[in-house]
Amino acid sequence: MDVLTSRRRLIVDGVGMSASAVGFGLVYGLSCRAAGFSPLEAGAMSTFVFAGASQFAAVGYVAGGFSWLGVVLLTAFINARHFLYSAALAPYLVNRPRVERALMAHVLTDESFALAIAHFRRIGRGDAFGYWWAAVAVVFIPWNLATLAGVLIGGAIPDPSLFGLDVIFPAAMAGLAVGLISGRREVVAALAGAVVGVALALAVDPAAGLIAGGLLGPILAMAAVRRPSPADELSLRPAPGKAPPE
């Protein structure tokens, strides 16, 4: 797919993700307000941490009287999955200046990874515009504005789950995963990751499940599905002048 067509698709796909960011951001702002955070504190969390799951967890931990050291360590644990996102995107962005890559890292989230990796795979290379659009226009700005709206306006905002906004995140992740599947290995990686992730999330913790699913899914797929050898690939090609088998 050419870059402009893929960018158009990225922008359209991003509309739904923005709605999700707004919904979760509003709920996060409301949680901050209920826990006694000032608007500045809530905004600082969304700007400097910019990682929804750990921000929600921190609200509960702060309200529960956890030590700051405990909150910071748990944040590092919950957000460890970003290492995998960064590693998967890095080969596509290696030609960008180091300063730009360092800035890109701060806005790397579940949503921006999902949109960017799908875009890069469609065009077969990296695209800085696509990454910045996914990370800043689709997620960072809506998330931060919604956080402020939630903490400032509070109870005047209707519950986003009434509009089904809470289902957008899993639906978007599943939909984008389907878009990345081009063979049996991807299918096995996705299914294995999901099964391992849910099992560990139930047994240990959701953050542990996410890390384990992302780490082990590809390993299980590579072990279970043998790559076609060059000889197999040759035997699958039709002979010159012959039509491929029906």
Binding site: R81, Y85, I117, A118, P170, P206, L210, G213, G217
Partner: peptide
């Protein structure tokens, strides 16, 4: 690393949906 994308997105979807 190529397989991290589908594995991670499917895991995110499954965990946020099923847990």
């Amino acid at each position: 690393l190529r397989l991290v994308g589908p594995a991670m997105l499917a895991t995110l979807a499954a965990v946020s949906l099923a847990v």
